[in-house]
Design a protein around this nucleic acid. Structure first.
Length: 417
RNA sequence: CGGGGUGUAGUGCAACGGUAGCACGAGUCGUUUGGGACGAUUUAAUCCCGGUUCGAAUCCGGGCACCCCGACCA
């Protein structure tokens, strides 16, 4: 895959936008990955969309390994479904966006899909033979937040991967729940935040004492967790009390308080949703049993924000290799029809054949400007081709993360990918 | 939703109640080409509505928008 930078319509900015404080928004806007539409709503531009798609691919792979099936539900939702669980009320759920149909009747815009999916599954879950299974989707969630903040980390419109499991009962559910946690850990490890992401004990529901959240250490986070690194136990602030501590076997004085951002959560509904929504199956004896449900979320765009918060320096973003918009950024110094350009085109072909994704800076711009943009974009490997490198017969390769510069042959370079 | 702050060319900043200026960007011409090149030249703005005043970017009222703190985040 090759993208010519001269064709990229976005521009980089030298200065931070004045209407952003959050580092993730400042850098992503300056680099042209996103555009601010309004507070809490950002457009994904070509480079930003590529990052989001990379994250989605990783999540998708892990969900497929879990055996989950991808779907896509609607954004407009029926009122009656939410009334069944008492959550249509603005008093109960304060983030609703609602509208009215011209022909009469109200609709809500999906801030979650728990109720609609439970309702939908009444069409497909009839017998114990239909269970268990799980489905997931990448969906744009709409939430009428009173205060959007922190750039793309808390928006009114954002992308979320939500998964729902439908099980025969507790045991069946617990098996999937544990597997989902494993899958989530793999996702966070693959996007580069494994070491700083902890499964925490969070407020539970009617069926479990705790739910679990995936919290990543970052100063930019809104949450705080209490961490015992030795025992690998992390506790959310809202459930930190003597009872919790006793049940988990940790002492308050052994806990370290760290600032974190929630990147995922898993929740056990038990039979609560099934009962409220009328989602039952017939067991072998013909008895009607409520379906046991769980929900599992990963904030895709928030995750992108967290990555920028964690991986950047004064010059720009430093993407982990797994989610970078491109593998390599080739910088040509010299005109469009220079020797360097010809050499760059040749190298590009060689690398492309190996599946390397390349952004080729073929613009008529000064070297300094190209280097600055490259640093801002944060593509892991920067390759410079110039009259100088041609003369030496070597390529200059710079690692964005370490800053290390190497002069190597084309063969050596190709072997890096 | 409570509190605080800010709205000026595309972007980032100036301007005592008295001619809206600077830098970057963008356009044109020329010279340049390894860390945001140089010269010439052009382009382009006071969030909206109302009030005070001879005169408002500036003061007052209302609205809208954005940022921050808190609350909220099932």
């Amino acid at each position: 895959m090759l993208m010519l930078q001269s064709k990229l319509f976005t521009k980089t900015r030298r200065e931070d936008p004045k209407d952003e404080q959050a580092k993730n928004a400042k850098l992503l806007i300056r680099a042209g990955f996103i555009n601010k539409e309004m507070a809490g709503a950002y457009d994904l531009l070509p480079l930003g969309l590529r990052v989001v798609e990379k994250i989605k691919s990783i999540v998708r792979e892990e969900m497929e390994k879990l055996g989950s099936q991808e779907i896509l539900m609607t954004s407009i939702q029926r009122k009656d479904v939410w009334e069944k669980t008492g959550r249509w009320s603005d008093e109960v759920v304060d983030v609703w966006f609602k509208s009215a149909l011209q022909v009469g009747g109200e609709v809500g815009f999906g801030w979650s899909h728990e109720e609609p999916i439970g309702d939908m599954m009444r069409n497909y879950i009839l017998s114990f033979r239909d269970l268990p299974f799980s489905v997931y989707q990448f969906q744009t969630k709409l939430r009428n937040e009173v205060r959007a903040k922190s750039g793309i980390m808390r928006g009114r419109e954002f992308m979320m991967k939500d998964m729902y499991s439908f099980s025969l009962g507790k045991e069946d559910h617990d098996r999937f729940y544990a597997a989902a946690i494993e899958a989530y850990n793999k996702v966070f490890a693959r996007v580069g935040i494994g070491a700083d992401t902890f499964v925490t004990f969070a407020a539970g529901g009617a069926f479990t004492k705790f739910s679990h959240e995936f919290q990543t250490i970052t100063e930019a986070g809104e949450d705080a967790i209490y961490l015992n690194r030795e025992k690998n136990i992390a506790i959310n602030e809202e459930v930190l009390n003597d009872e919790t501590l006793a049940s988990l076997g940790v002492k308050r004085e052994d806990l370290e308080k760290v600032s974190t951002a929630e990147v995922g959560n898993v929740f056990n509904f038990g039979t609560e949703k099934g009962e409220a929504l009328g989602l039952f199956f017939k067991d072998q004896s013909g008895e009607s049993i409520p379906v046991w449900m769980g929900s599992y979320g990963i904030g895709i765009t928030r995750l992108m924000g967290v990555l920028v918060e964690k991986f950047s320096d004064e010059k720009g973003i430093i993407w982990p290799k797994s989610v970078a918009p491109f593998d390599a950024h080739i910088i040509v110094i010299g005109g469009m029809d220079s020797e360097a350009m010809i050499a760059a085109n040749k190298l590009t072909e060689t690398l492309e054949a190996r599946g390397v994704e390349i952004l080729l800076d073929d613009r008529e711009a000064s070297a300094g400007e190209k280097f600055s943009d490259a640093d801002l974009f944060g593509i892991p490997t920067r390759i410079v081709i110039s009259p100088k490198t041609l003369e030496e017969g070597k390529l200059e390769v710079k690692d964005r993360a370490t800053g290390e510069v190497k002069k190597i042959s084309e063969e050596e370079l190709v072997s890096l990918f």
